[in-house]
Simulated scan of single mutants.
Amino acid sequence: MKRGLLIAAMAGMVLTSNVANAAAPPASWDGLVKVKSKRLDLAYLQPGADFRGYTKVMLDPTEVAFEKNWQRDYNSSSRDLSSRVSDRDVQQALVKGVAASNEIFAEAWSKGGYQVVTEPGPDVLRIKTGVVNITVNAPDVRTSSRGVTLAPEAGQATFFIEARDSLTGALLGRAVDQRYAGDYGGGNWRTSASNRGDFRDLVSGWARDGVNGLNNLKALSPIRP
């Protein structure tokens, strides 16, 4: 199975406290072993990996993707034709999402004390991230109405992060996490503007988790099986 498909498959089986019947995640994944994580739903590390020498990061463009049937399901439930999400709306949202996510992750690593570089090196960790399976309750489309939606949350998404040695390509770790965007519970007015802010906060939280996670891995290195 290709790496991208495998990541998508794992993202689909993220465990949350609200999914009691979800299948148990595997104990190993591409040679990585499952470890406990305080912040992320699933985390896997390469036994013996040593993260202490990495002071710089090389960031791949963030993968951004909506849940496969989100557009279809949203449009089928919309009574106002002008509020339906077009293919163009989806593509524009993806372009904006990639640009915003790239900016957020780069800023987080820089603030965390890691130089963001574009070339491999012995002290460079290559980071791949993705924000996928996105659903949005109030898409940014023009409507003939006020353009607000009453919903318990702005939407949700699944995050994945993968770390490799930049020179050898050796896989050192992966993690997957699923969260709601915005405050969950009750009913709140959701608009396209508030959703953009909620999703930006969501991605910013994952970016900080990535930086803090590497700092913790340095303290725990070399990783024991």
Rank of each mutant, 00 (worst) to 15 (best):
L5Q: 14
I7P: 03
A8P: 10
A11V: 01
M13P: 06
V14T: 08
N18K: 14
V19W: 14
A20E: 12
A24Y: 05
S37F: 03
L40I: 15
L42F: 02
L42G: 05
D50M: 02
T55S: 06
T55E: 00
V57E: 02
M58I: 02
M58F: 04
L59I: 04
L59Y: 10
D60H: 11
A65W: 07
N69M: 14
R72P: 08
D73I: 15
Y74Q: 04
N75H: 08
S86F: 09
L94P: 07
G97V: 02
A99D: 14
I104Y: 01
I104K: 04
F105M: 02
A108I: 07
Q115W: 12
V117K: 03
P120T: 09
G121H: 01
G121R: 06
L125N: 10
I127N: 00
K128S: 13
V132M: 05
N133W: 02
I134T: 08
T135N: 05
V136Q: 15
N137P: 09
A138F: 02
D140F: 00
V141Y: 06
R146K: 15
L150N: 12
A151E: 10
P152R: 04
P152A: 01
A157Y: 05
I161L: 10
R164C: 10
T168Y: 10
T168C: 11
T168V: 05
A170L: 11
L171T: 11
L172H: 00
R174I: 03
R174Q: 09
A175Q: 03
V176I: 04
V176F: 00
N188L: 12
G197C: 01
D198M: 00
V203L: 08
V203G: 00
W206K: 08
A207H: 01
G210F: 07
N212C: 07
K218N: 09
S221C: 12
P222D: 06
P222Q: 05
